[in-house]
Computed example of a mutant assay.
Amino acid sequence: MKIKSLTFVIAIMVNGILCFSQNNQPAVIEDFKPSSLNQPGQEYPQVNSQGYVRFKIIAPTADSVRVSLGLGGRGGTKLKQAADTSWMGTTEGPMDEGFHYYNIRIDGGKFNDPGAKNYYGSVRWESGIEIPAHDQDFYALKNVPHGNVVQVLFPSPSTGTSRRAFVYTPPGYDSKSKQRYPVLYLQHGWGEDETAWSNQGHANLIMDNLIAENKITPFIIVMTYGMTNEVRMGGMRNFKIEPFQTVLIDELIPYIDANFRTIAKQSQRAMGGLSMGGMETHTITLNKPEVFSYYALLSGGTYTPAEIKDKSNIKLIFLSCGSKERPDGVKNAAAALKDAGINAVSYVSENTAHEFLTWRRSLLELAPLLFKN
């Protein structure tokens, strides 16, 4: 399911969650194991080697229990009551690899699965499940030097309060007291917040692993809340970029440059985002071309050559999406930008949709292209 604005496809990360075909499914292999995102000591939900998920919910007096499918819990996997009065069920087919949000409907009410950890998405804390990916090594927690993700509260006169951001600093940042770093401002999607790229996206682990392999120039990542006015589902046409643009350009960036060892130059500053964060990136980079030299839209639309008024300071435009989204649009847009003399790169994540494995892989592809000397 996707949410469409007038110009961009803004889709919540629940797109493709538990989207199954009922035809020609292979026999289910009974090698289910607890999900890696379960609460400590909880056996359910479970995932098997094919990507099927099995749920168990304790609701002895319920009349119906269903695992949500897509926006608002429509459809999904209907559970059946077992002899012990618990409710159990297995998805009708395998899920896409990677992270997904879900919730439980009990007699029409929406609840989180008590067996699973919670993640902020869909403008609420949702249950999360991880389907092991064949290429998950790049975001795995490894025995390598690790950077830090620190919370900062920065003053925001325009909104009359302090606002929160999370800042990833590379391994060794604290010990290298004179070294300065480029910065990527990285935005979340609609319904999420500034915790998403670390918790759901594993951006810090992706960076740690790339740095350990000497594949990238180390840089700082700043992640902040991208909403300044509350917009309900389906109302993205009412979202106004100007308040957030003020927060980012006039308040957050000066704070980061004053409190972290950044290279405070356009040539050493990037902005990117997934889904709605891509829409924000698109608009702000065009409105403020003097601020950023690297632009990245991850399932967040495209640029056209006509939108680029001055290409002289643009070092890179990166466009990506999942193969189940609109890959031809991303590829064609990058080709048109290249023909116009702009350094543009497209990337398509195979067998994924509007979901976090697409964006984890996109960051893996993007990071080595940033701040190359």
Rank of each mutant, 00 (worst) to 15 (best):
K2C: 07
I3C: 04
T7S: 14
I10R: 00
A11W: 04
I12N: 12
M13H: 05
V14E: 14
V14P: 00
N15V: 10
P26D: 08
P26S: 07
I29A: 05
F32S: 04
N38F: 04
N38W: 01
Q39P: 04
P40D: 01
Y44C: 00
N48S: 06
N48L: 10
Q50C: 11
G51W: 08
F55R: 09
I57Y: 10
T61V: 06
D63M: 08
V67L: 13
S68G: 15
L69G: 15
L71R: 06
L71P: 04
L71I: 14
L71E: 11
G72Y: 08
G73D: 06
G76L: 12
K78I: 13
L79E: 07
S86P: 02
S86A: 13
S86Y: 05
T91E: 06
P94E: 12
I106S: 12
G109L: 10
K110I: 14
K110H: 02
K110W: 10
A116C: 07
G121Y: 04
S122C: 09
R124D: 04
W125N: 13
I129D: 08
I131W: 05
I131T: 10
P132M: 04
P132Q: 11
D137T: 12
D137P: 02
Y139C: 06
Y139K: 05
L141I: 14
V152L: 12
T159W: 03
S162C: 11
R163Y: 09
R163N: 11
R164Y: 13
A165T: 04
T169P: 09
P170R: 08
P171R: 06
Y173S: 12
K176H: 14
Y181T: 10
G191A: 08
D193N: 14
W197N: 01
W197P: 01
S198V: 06
N204Q: 13
L205P: 02
L205M: 12
M207R: 06
D208V: 07
T224H: 02
G226H: 05
G226C: 00
N229E: 14
E230F: 06
M233T: 02
G235C: 03
R237F: 09
N238Y: 13
F239P: 01
F244Y: 15
F244N: 08
Q245R: 13
T246P: 11
V247L: 09
D250R: 14
D250L: 12
Y255P: 06
A258K: 14
A258L: 03
A258M: 03
T262D: 09
K265S: 15
Q266Y: 08
L274C: 09
M279D: 08
M279E: 11
E280T: 05
T281E: 02
H282E: 09
T285F: 03
P289W: 07
V291E: 03
Y295F: 13
L297R: 01
G300Q: 01
D310P: 03
N313A: 12
I314Y: 00
I314H: 00
F318P: 00
L319Q: 02
S320H: 05
C321A: 15
C321T: 10
K324F: 15
E325T: 10
R326C: 08
R326L: 13
D328L: 13
V330H: 03
K331I: 14
A333E: 10
A333C: 07
K338C: 08
D339N: 15
N343E: 07
A344D: 09
Y347L: 05
T352C: 00
T352L: 05
F356E: 02
E365S: 05
A367K: 00
K372P: 03
N373K: 15
